[in-house]
């Protein structure tokens, strides 16, 4: 039933009931949702009134209120299409190339609370792959501070999640660190504080020399020295490879 509505039937229905250059009215949430779903699945039937290219924003929030806030922020914009779920969803914002990050940041600034956004840009024909990218970026970003993320911010993690033989190897490498909570906490804090030892020690409420000692143990167990940016990236990606829960996004 849904699939029929998704494709031809929806197209015909829309042609019939709408003036040719308009999207369904904002009140018609269900039809607009179907339209968003069709576009994000790569089924573009050439609806009139659509933009040539979109910023795909995959978002998630720690609470349902957070989701409601995001939806409220775009409610009055008739050009934005929404596919929402209980803990997150997708927004399609008409967008010129290279404007998507700014657009998403602007939106993020308007909502309070813990909200993560992953943004990718694509011409209308490539929205399915932009959606897949945004979903994976969001999944990785959920392990970091709330904010707006592009592929480049989680590039290494993204590539490794797409290459299972690499991610298995990294997960094995980091396993002995994960098995010891104090070491795991020390590494996580060091990563979150962008390699700032003093800040990481403060965050954990431990002495700086204790932190140094734990980081040395991490190096001994993994062969990667946290103070080196490349090695820290490897360790951070290994943590992602070890555990990166799926984000509940609508299908």
């Amino acid at each position: 039933m849904t699939t029929v509505v998704d494709s031809r039937l929806l197209n015909d229905v829309l042609r019939d009931i709408l003036s040719p250059f308009d999207l369904p009215p904002v009140e018609d949430v269900a039809t607009r949702r179907q339209l968003a779903r069709a576009l994000l699945s790569g089924r573009d039937n050439g609806f009139e009134g659509l933009a040539l290219a979109y910023a795909v924003v995959a978002f998630s929030a720690s609470t349902e209120d957070g989701v409601a806030e995001v939806l409220a922020a775009v409610r009055d914009n008739a050009d934005v299409l929404v596919l929402d779920g209980t803990r997150g969803g997708y927004l399609l914002l008409p967008c010129a190339q290279d404007q998507h990050a700014g657009l998403a940041r602007e939106l993020h600034d308007r909502v309070g609370g813990e909200v993560w956004m992953a943004v990718a840009w694509a011409p209308r024909r490539d929205l399915a792959s932009a959606r897949a990218t945004a979903a994976d970026v969001l999944r990785i970003a959920n392990g970091r501070a709330p904010g707006v993320y592009e592929l480049r911010h989680v590039l290494a993690d993204f590539a490794v999640l797409r290459q299972p033989h690499v991610s298995e190897r990294l997960a094995r490498m980091i396993e002995p660190v994960v098995a010891q909570q104090p070491l795991l906490d020390a590494l996580r804090a060091f990563i979150s504080e962008d390699g700032n030892r003093a800040a990481a020690a403060r965050r954990l409420d431990i002495h700086r020399s204790t932190l140094d000692h734990r980081l040395r143990l991490v190096e001994r167990l993994t062969g990667h020295r946290p103070a080196s940016p490349r090695a820290l990236l490897t360790l951070s990606v290994a943590l992602t490879a070890h555990s990166c829960p799926e984000v509940p996004l609508p299908h």
Binding site: L151, L155, A159, G223, T234
Partner: peptide, 17 residues
């Protein structure tokens, strides 16, 4: 070892990245 260039090799194999 491969561990030393793992990220680069994963990036090379992933077209989007």
């Amino acid at each position: 070892r491969i561990d030393d260039v793992l990220l680069e090799s994963a990036v090379m194999e992933t077209p989007e990245a």
